[in-house]
Design a protein around this nucleic acid. Structure first.
Length: 272
DNA sequence: ATGGTAGCACGGCTA
């Protein structure tokens, strides 16, 4: 059995005590981190390696940054999505993690937020640069996922997608209709990725669960009111979906002191 | 309530 988790930590340095405690408690075999907010050289390698993890890091100063932690060896590490001309955001890293006869391709994804949606009053573009960047990035992710699926390997595309897939995945859908996380364009492009043949691991195993969130804003008492969003996802290739035995959201880290605004979601894959 | 909180880095951006 291999346990794979994804967590947007909102700065790996600010979150280090919480991250180390959670790694000990949850004992995931693979962890996909987003928003590490530091360059590769500033990543707290020793502390995490001491817990038995191999590392692949794609860092950036101040913003973004993604990483993969794995108790099995990591090979074929790829940083950045294809077609990256002019894209200096560290939002994608992929590697092959091996656990005996179970060899998994895993990707840590930090999809652009896209807000604000509206363009500046001056200029003719229908949307802001940020929203158009998000939508274009989703097209690139879809094309790369399509190419990766052609390998017919067990693959997990995990991370902070910054997309609320359906009205059941947000506490107040009507208040979020015009937000970049819930607008039709974002949801359509997310559906197009799913329709390549990927399985949303959480929804596959919990089709009717409501108030199943992975993010609660720091503001306005969102955590205390359970005003959350489900925006962190584990999308599985058919070969990985065939091995899926469990998936859940671990809400405990969100309730701790110095919490990230996101909480981990994990799944288990097991050879039959 | 054009607010509220957090991180980085020390002013303003990102979320």
């Amino acid at each position: 059995m291999v346990k794979i988790a994804t967590w947007n930590v909102n700065s790996v340095k600010a979150r280090l005590p919480n991250l180390l405690a959670w790694l000990g408690d949850a004992a995931p075999d693979v962890v996909l981190l987003q928003e590490i907010k530091c360059v590769d050289d500033a990543f707290p390698r020793m502390e995490i390696e001491d817990l038995g993890y191999n590392l692949a890091v794609h860092g950036q100063k101040t913003y973004n940054g993604v990483a993969i932690l794995s108790k099995g060896p990591l090979d074929d590490i790829r940083r950045g999505l294809p077609e990256g001309d002019g894209d200096d955001h560290a939002r994608y890293i992929e590697a092959v993690a091996s656990f005996g006869d179970l060899v998994l391709r895993v990707a840590s994804i930090y999809l652009p937020n896209g807000n604000p949606v509206d363009a500046d009053p001056v200029g003719s573009a229908p949307f802001s640069d940020k929203y158009r960047f998000k939508l274009a990035w989703m097209d690139r992710l879809r094309r790369h996922a399509q190419a990766t699926l052609a390998l017919e390997e067990p693959t997990v595309f995990g991370g902070d997608y910054n997309v609320i897939p359906t009205a059941d995945d947000v506490y107040a859908p009507d208040a979020w209709r015009e937000d970049a996380l819930f607008r039709l364009e974002s949801r359509e492009k997310f559906r197009a990725i799913i329709h390549l043949g990927l399985t949303d691991a959480y929804r596959a195993l919990h089709p009717d669960e409501t108030r199943a969130y992975t993010f609660w804003d720091y503001q306005a008492g969102a955590w205390q009111r359970d005003n959350g969003l489900r925006i962190d996802h584990l999308l599985l290739s058919p070969q990985a979906a065939d091995l899926l035995t469990a998936c859940d959201i671990d809400k405990a880290p969100r309730g701790r002191e110095k919490a990230s605004d996101h909480t981990p979601i994990w799944c288990e894959l097991q050879r039959p």
